[in-house]
């Protein structure tokens, strides 16, 4: 790349009259004042600018011819690249051909954030305790946790999840709800074909009907 830079600066003849004064200004800038940590791309500009002024009159015809030849060579290089692509399109092609490859080659990464889901196990149980931490963590109120009070067998009152309402239409897939959930009850699914015609259809209730909280294994069970 630098070689190209040098070469091309060489062929810059003094035709930029508008900038001739600016060129002189450039000459006054001393490179190297910025310590050893900088790449001095400017150096080649500088040396070549000086050279150019010296040789301007002497070699104008020579430069003219050289410029024409350089132009053809550089353009031919670009043409060769595109020709290579044109010929080897089968190999270099990058099209995904999406609707055709949805069942075959499509690659959606495992972690892709498509939508929030509340996984249920085979007994139709989920892990959400309706603590509303996710609701609080969500920056744009995409989550509504509606809970209800029920009475357990031993007469205690308990708050359980009634509806886990998820507004996919306003979710920004920021992962904060999942990060905030102490129970690891929710997950991100990598689904991606979510478009619908009516945005009210994007309001989901994530807990399945009749589902209930998965009982935490008691300490005794855990040990055994």
């Amino acid at each position: 790349m630098f070689c190209i830079g040098i070469y091309s600066s060489l062929k810059k003849t003094g035709e930029l009259n508008l900038y001739s004064s600016l060129q002189e200004e450039k000459l006054n800038i001393k490179p190297g004042s910025n310590g050893t940590n900088s790449v001095k791309l400017g150096k080649c500009h500088l040396i070549l600018a000086q050279k150019k002024i010296k040789n301007k009159q002497m070699k104008s015809l020579f430069n003219y011819i050289k410029e024409v030849i350089y132009a053809f060579v550089s353009l031919a290089k670009g043409l060769l690249l595109t020709l290579r692509y044109f010929i080897t399109i089968k190999k270099v092609n990058i099209t995904e051909e999406y609707p055709n490859n949805r069942t075959t080659t499509i690659s959606v990464k495992e972690r892709f954030y498509g939508e929030v889901v509340l996984p249920h196990n085979e007994n139709n149980e989920h892990k959400c305790t309706a603590c509303t931490l996710c609701q609080m963590a969500c920056p744009n109120n995409s989550i509504q946790i509606i809970s209800k009070q029920i009475e357990t067998e031993d007469g205690k009152k308990k708050r359980v999840l009634d509806k886990w309402v998820y507004h996919l239409d306003s979710c920004t897939f920021c992962y904060q709800c999942i990060d905030a959930c102490p129970q690891d009850a929710i997950e991100m699914k990598n689904s991606f074909e979510l478009s619908v015609y009516d945005r009210t259809k994007l309001i989901y209730q994530l807990n399945r009907p009749g589902s209930k909280l998965k009982e935490k294994p008691t300490v005794k069970e855990q040990q055994s």
């Binding site: 450039k26 900088s38 791309l41 400017g42 500009h45």
Partner: peptide, 19 residues
Amino acid sequence: KEVIDYGCDNWARYLVHME
């Protein structure tokens, strides 16, 4: 390295980006 160019023009900006 911190990439610095003294060209001040579009070409210099281009080179800085590339480097």
